[in-house]
């Protein structure tokens, strides 16, 4: 097979997946080419995806790139931060070329500190009661509705789950959040913090079952050097690739992927 043939073959394959998705709706493109390719076009619109990784694995960067790429094609987004104050978040973002202050100013990308919101709602900072959780859920839905967003991030769901006290509450919260955002056709990324070097998709062991998709950011050791990796573990409604990719984070291009070379370890 010549090179140009293989290229056409690839295109066809992606085309096939797009047709499958066309039944429901157009995929929500991440704008990270290699990731969209892996997903057969993008994240299924309205899905709730768990983005899993240890601290520093690039969850926030990936989520932000997803939002800014959405803004570039006219899709509004909101980023709810729980772990980091806004000034820290924007300071980190300024390092990346994909970040444009105008997107914030124009309201295409909204950054909201969820702790301030919950403080204003009079919620306990440490623990949420069932009522607190449903109040918060309503507000999240209202805000998404008011801003008319198509992309929503919660960074991190782990910090939120920490405040929900039982597994049932966590299950209920994510399930209700996911289904109401799906009805608005809003694609959601929940970041999930896990300890390094552990194959575990969520801290509380429930988040992963309720999410429609899981993307895992990990690393592999190559003679002592750690190589960042990205793998799509599950994605409902797509024929996604399950191969592991090497991931690079640079200020110029943000996140980029390339197939991981497999060493014989």
């Amino acid at each position: 097979m010549t090179n140009s043939e293989s290229y056409v073959y690839n295109q066809n394959r992606i085309g096939l997946n797009e047709n499958e998705n066309a039944k429901s709706s157009c995929p929500c493109i991440t704008g990270i080419d290699e990731l969209d390719q892996k997903l057969g076009g993008g994240l299924p619109s309205g899905n709730t995806v768990l983005l899993v990784g240890s601290s520093g694995s690039g969850k926030t960067t990936l989520s932000m790139q997803f939002l800014t790429n959405g803004a570039k094609i006219g899709e509004r987004g909101v980023f709810f931060t729980i772990t980091e104050p806004l000034f820290k978040l924007t300071k980190n973002l300024e390092k990346f070329d994909f970040y444009d202050k105008k997107m914030i100013e124009s309201g295409m990308v909204n950054l909201i500190d969820l702790r301030i919101i919950s403080e204003r709602l009079g919620l306990d900072a440490e623990k949420y009661t069932v009522e607190d959780a449903s109040a918060l859920l309503e507000i999240l839905k209202d805000i998404a509705d008011e801003l008319d967003v198509k992309r929503l991030i919660i960074d991190s769901i782990t910090a939120l789950c920490y405040r929900l006290q039982t597994k049932e509450m966590i299950r209920d919260f994510i399930f209700k959040l996911g289904s109401s955002l799906a009805s608005m056709n809003c694609t959601t990324i929940l970041t999930s913090e896990v300890p390094p070097n552990e194959v575990k998709y969520s801290q509380y062991g429930i988040e992963e079952f309720i999410a429609d998709g899981i993307i895992f950011l990990g690393d592999v050791d190559r003679k002592g050097d750690l190589i960042r990796t990205l793998q799509v573990i599950k994605m409902r409604g797509t024929n996604h690739s399950r191969t592991k990719s090497a991931m690079s984070i640079s200020s110029k291009n943000g996140i980029e992927l390339t197939p991981l070379l497999k060493s014989r370890v």
Binding site: R222, I227, S248, E256, T258
Partner: peptide, 16 residues
Amino acid sequence: IESPSYLEKIIIEIMN
């Protein structure tokens, strides 16, 4: 590039 073992990164940079 931080290390000659970051082969994937090398590919990414070349292509970029």
